[in-house]
């Protein structure tokens, strides 16, 4: 498989079959919390894509540094601190230089520090793409992050649609609120099971 084809297959895998929210259960809090309205769902997921890409670009070289010094066991601490500092930095920079982007994404940025999808993608990249710091592997890691972010957005946007329908439904009293939302999420996730196997066949 050529390299570009491989990158494309990684992208599709992470959007459809390995969807972060619906099959890996990462980032459930924002999924349930801000998916009520379409515009907040889109803003939040755009911010997540943005932070995932930057976080991967920064933590990947740092991990090579940790390997070189034999301190891999510090990865969790280092990554969460790097992400937290980075998010703060990005927020300040955006506020100062690109206020229009800040108004669109900025308000979601502080929430993303403690989002498990971001730390999750960074840790999974280290697991799946190894830590031989070649540019090819770096490309794979960046593609994973992009796919994970886009998959996050797809699930959020779809679910915002499902929830707006749910608003007008007459639900039994004890199921109202979160329980019925979770059952709806279960059905959305069921529909994504249908993509199983599609990637192998598409790129074989």
């Amino acid at each position: 498989m050529s390299y570009s084809k491989e990158l494309l297959s990684i992208l599709v895998t992470y959007i459809l079959t390995q969807n972060f929210i619906l099959s890996k259960f990462l980032g459930i809090c924002p999924f349930l919390g801000v998916s009520k309205k379409l515009n907040t769902a889109v803003g939040m997921s755009a911010a997540v894509i943005f932070v995932m890409l930057i976080a991967t670009a920064v933590t990947y070289p740092i991990y090579n540094l940790l390997v070189a010094t034999g301190l891999q066991y510090l990865e969790t601490i280092v990554f969460i601190l790097v992400i937290a500092a980075l998010v703060q930095l990005v927020e300040i920079t955006l506020k100062k230089y690109i206020p229009s982007l800040y108004n669109a994404l900025g308000i979601y940025l502080p929430l993303i520090t403690t989002n498990c999808a971001v730390l999750g993608v960074v840790l999974l990249n280290i697991d799946t793409n190894g830590y031989s710091g070649t540019f090819a592997n770096f490309g794979r890691a960046m593609m994973c992050s992009l796919g994970a972010g886009l998959g996050f957005m797809l699930a959020m946007v779809m679910f915002a649609g499902v929830r707006s329908r749910l608003e007008s439904c007459d639900v039994p009293k004890f199921l109202k609120g979160l329980p019925i939302t979770l059952v709806a999420a279960s059905l959305t996730s069921l529909s994504f099971l249908g993509f199983a196997g599609i990637v192998e066949n598409m790129f074989s």
Binding site: L22, S23, F25, F174, L175, K176, G177, L178, P179, I180, T181, L182, V183, A185, S186, L187, S189, L190, F192, L193
Partner: peptide, 27 residues
């Protein structure tokens, strides 16, 4: 994955039902 969401939803519904009986607010 779908089973996870489904079981969690139903468990929470049960917890809400019990809480309601004791006059507590819903989750």
């Amino acid at each position: 994955a779908p089973g996870g969401f489904f079981v969690f939803g139903l468990l929470m519904a049960c917890a809400n039902k019990l809480a309601e009986g004791k006059g507590l607010p819903k989750a």
